[in-house]
Design a protein around this nucleic acid. Structure first.
Lengths: 149, 149
DNA sequence: TAAAACCTTTGGGTTACACAAAGGTCAAGC
DNA sequence: GCTTGACCTTTGTGTAACCCAAAGGTTTTA
């Protein structure tokens, strides 16, 4: 199989396949004649494995470790369990943060009715935002607004 | 105030202040003698505004737009409302995804008891992961495992 | 056989900073 | 006055997981 064949079979883009290949998660043979990558059914299984691991929240680097273990004949399962166990509370925490964020957003929208769209007057840019509680200046806390695309 | 003074007053790092300055969110005067940035109380207010906006999930680029509106004498409030309204459902969706992720992780951990830590045999890397449902190869769906640090 | 479709590698873009390096500045103590 | 340490500047690099464009070779197809 060529790149796009594998990509289609797994439901990802060719770019993703190339990315994993660059990162060493997939190690296809190369056709000596034209330099094309040649993937086989094992690569497809491996890619399916990667996709499943991604749905568990594992990073590419972690999946790399897991695959390395397996490639060395060691069971990666204990590693997988440890990673899951340590990641789960972080996910829960992240959910809490996002729920708090959603709540703040809703409250802000609800508060809209009670506040005029004041033109900035040098003291206020947008009262809606300025009426929020000040983010704690405490180093320890505050991880509230991490967003991704 | 110098960089670190402002940073301390707002509870952020000096690097963050410099970052916002580079990005144009803050526009301090420069001491012609030594090239040091000079921030005043308005910059502190502006920085506090930025922090509050961040807690609402706004990106730096969005905050830049909001501030530009205000700097031009226009009320940024309608913009803020539109951004909030369009972002909120995305946050809700993200929460759903993370909850589904947490559930999968828990189920995986629960399933541990029923599965041996098999050494990889060429057919199975880690049965725990391979027993997961296959990620849909459907282009439309599937955005399950976006993680950040 | 020529064009369409696909392959390769290389390099840049995305987010919001953190961090290191190289070099100038400033406050304090001796 | 001078050394030292703390702080300032700009510039460049790294982060996560890809996406996208460019330049140039290959394969397939009409």
């Amino acid at each position: 199989m060529k790149v796009s064949d594998l990509a289609k079979a797994a439901g990802v883009t060719s770019e993703t396949v190339r990315h994993y290949t660059r990162e060493g998660l997939l190690a296809p043979a190369k056709d000596p004649h034209n330099g094309y990558h040649r993937f086989d059914s094992q690569d497809l299984e491996r890619l399916a494995f990667i996709q499943r691991a991604r749905t568990l929240g594992f990073s590419i680097k972690e999946i790399h470790e897991i695959l390395d273990h397996a490639d060395h004949g060691d069971s990666p399962c204990p590693l997988v369990r440890d990673l899951l166990a340590s990641r789960l509370p972080q996910i829960r925490e992240r959910i809490q943060e996002l729920e708090a964020l959603a709540t703040r957003m809703e409250q802000a929208l609800d508060a809209w009715a009670d506040m005029p769209d004041g033109t900035p007057d040098g003291h206020s840019l947008c009262r809606l935002i300025e009426s929020l509680p000040a983010p704690s200046t405490d180093k320890a806390a505050s991880n509230t607004a991490k967003e991704e695309a």
